[in-house]
Nucleic acid binder design. Structure first.
Lengths: 202, 202
DNA sequence: GTTCCGGCCGAACGAACGTTCGGACGGACT
DNA sequence: AGTCCGTCCGAACGTTCGTTCGGCCGGAAC
């Protein structure tokens, strides 16, 4: 990796943090200048525009979750474990890349033209990937599409309340969300609830 | 209701629509002027600032969901039905007030000072209300707080993909989400799945 | 030792921003 | 007829925005 590339990476990471804090429109290039230590005009040697900065952040992050998910799912044998692996990976990845994932989730409609189209397409592919996992595991009551969006909502909402350094470790949160999605909050089917309780020694 | 108040209501509704489309920071007072038909300075007869406009939209909407939820829950007898009523109401309300609810969900960190504090407090109360419903209905595997945020995520994510006029009617979506939250996607407990399938004649 | 070039900057550009101000208009009161 | 007040406006305020431009600087190339 060249010197230029590593400096660019640093810029993207810093920018993601500020975008996550103040929002894309709420952040000025001067804010980024202050946060990165680069001068206002200096940043334009790494990126041709503020929008491209957002695009690069989103595109890179999307590539990382998607390829990570594919890798995680590949290791699992049956459809149910595959779905579990997807959830586990997405939640843990989210927790360890909060800024980028918040920017990816929250600044969804700020890009236009080609950049917007490319991000939209990659997002669709990622959603389709989950939908296929769900279709391989049909539910009697819930449409796969609805289930996919509901699950993404559950997981992506994380950035509004969850603190990775708080009392709940990321992998525990992932486990809890996987269980919630697969088995439900489960209060009115005592036998199933008891089975789950027994299986965890509680 | 005075003439002034009804005009203000109209302004808030129009502004909510534009805020939902372009975001708070992405919307200029000139955009709102164009959309409402009022002049740029004319709008300042109804509201002292752009931020107060956002606050009024959020505050009113929050009051409506919260009181609606209380009303819906009051009619239900047992804890499980109460939770179901809450979900049903929240989803259906969301679907019929998409713009306002999107602004309420998405423009969460744009207010400051007193206005931010007031909205934050009312939101906390609304979350607490759901958390109490969940605590009255303990789950063996999922913490009520996690369940509450997961459920809100599932429901509030709606604005990113759901179209009320599309193939899925709001009350059907609500039903599906309630079932998903309570029973889970349910594929590995055949007896429970079969029971649900039988109960709906499938 | 001179040239060259990538990295970086200060200063400035025109445009757009939220907000203000003085006044125009018209119906209700005296 | 004259006054008042709520409604609304055009024009402008100062500020901040994203972006550009000309040039400085230091090390590599010749």
């Amino acid at each position: 990796m060249t010197d230029f590339d590593s400096r660019l990476d640093r810029l993207l990471a810093d920018a993601a943090k500020i975008f996550a804090e103040r929002g894309f429109h709420g952040t000025s290039m001067r804010d980024l200048s202050r946060a990165t230590g680069l001068s206002l005009s200096g940043m334009y040697h790494y990126v041709p525009s503020k929008h491209e900065l957002l695009f690069r952040i989103q595109d890179r992050c999307l590539g990382q979750v998607a390829s990570g998910a594919r890798r995680a799912v590949a290791h699992a044998s049956d459809p149910e474990r595959r779905l579990g692996a997807f959830i586990q990976h997405h939640v843990v990845f989210f927790a360890s890349h909060v800024a980028e994932m918040k920017v990816l989730s929250h600044e969804d409609e700020e890009l236009t033209g080609t950049m917007a189209a490319q991000i939209r397409q990659r997002k669709r592919a990622y959603v389709a990937f989950l939908t296929e996992l769900l279709e391989a595991l049909p539910s009697p009551a819930v449409r796969p599409q609805v289930a996919a969006y509901a699950l993404f909502g559950m997981m992506n909402w994380i950035y509004t309340w969850y603190h990775p350094a708080g009392p709940i470790p990321p992998d525990e949160l992932a486990e809890e969300m996987a269980r919630l999605f697969m088995d439900g909050y489960q209060t009115h089917t005592p036998h199933a609830a008891a089975a789950v309780a027994a299986s965890q020694g509680g």
